[in-house]
Design a protein around this nucleic acid. Structure first.
Lengths: 144, 144
DNA sequence: TGTGCATTGCTATTGCCAATAGCATTTTAT
DNA sequence: ATAAAATGCTATTGGCAATAGCAATGCACA
């Protein structure tokens, strides 16, 4: 069987990312969290009071799609909202949210560390520069 | 604003892949194709007569999810099935499918080439080995 | 040779996530 | 004061992965 796809960086990038996401979600399911939950917890932990819109911009999630994400974490008493002005609300971690955040970070750091170690030591320093370059390129929507 | 996520290889991997997929799909929409369509066309082009199941295994798409994918391409007269035995069918490109395949490959190669060039020349040789290592690690479902 | 098991393709359903359009309210800019 | 932008939201759609289960077929082995 010939696989013409595995020679394509973009294809391998996507397969690697999909597999990584699956692993991450499997690990996070121990806490009943999804990767999107965990990323929001981490963002709020580092930026207490930031707006739902701002979080969406950083995570590249549209305003409309932030609604169910925030609602779910609020229902589970992991985050709370406080009015900033008449239309926007600041997000904060609850006590319980801080505990979950801590555990999520532990899980994520463990997976990230093991993934890093799977890359040979001489290539490891080039990992982030390369991924960063790929991200930059594709974020600029290079129409062609 | 502090972004604790951009230091995580897994997160950057996923953002890069998502952005890449969006670009690819945007380019392929010129042909009315999705990335999954294009990958199947490429696989069938290189392995005429392969089975729907085998294609699914190579693409990591489950049998059940191959059905709508194959059906769509059959309806558009890009691929056809021929019975191999009583239960499995071999997939082949039609004449029209070959033409679409050629155009899809051109689009994909162009995007891949431009993406590669966005990585500095000294890092470029390390790209595939690193992505391959990340893929391998995450594919082995490292439970923890 | 026949019996049990695996394979293939399929239906049907569920869940996650992205994308779009539109709305009411509030803030900001001119 | 008025126009424009921002914020949060509803509702809907589409793409794709995952699961369970089914009928038909092929295969291995006693």
């Amino acid at each position: 069987m010939i696989d013409p796809l595995i020679a394509l960086p973009g294809y391998v990038l996507n397969r690697a990312a999909a597999a990584n996401l699956a692993n991450l979600n499997q690990q996070l399911s121990k806490l009943g969290l999804r990767h999107s939950d965990a990323s929001l917890l981490m963002l709020v932990a580092s930026n207490a009071g930031l707006t739902q819109s701002d979080a969406g911009k950083m995570l590249d999630i549209q305003r409309a799609n932030m609604v169910p994400l925030v609602s779910r974490l609020m229902k589970r008493d992991l985050i709370l909202k406080e009015p900033v002005d008449g239309r926007s609300h600041g997000l904060f971690l609850t006590r319980k949210g801080k505990a979950f955040h801590k555990e999520a970070v532990a899980i994520i750091n463990d997976l990230e560390a093991r993934m890093l170690e799977s890359v040979s030591e001489d290539l490891r320093p080039h990992l982030m520069p390369i991924l960063g370059a790929l991200w930059d390129f594709n974020m600029k929507k290079p129409a062609g």
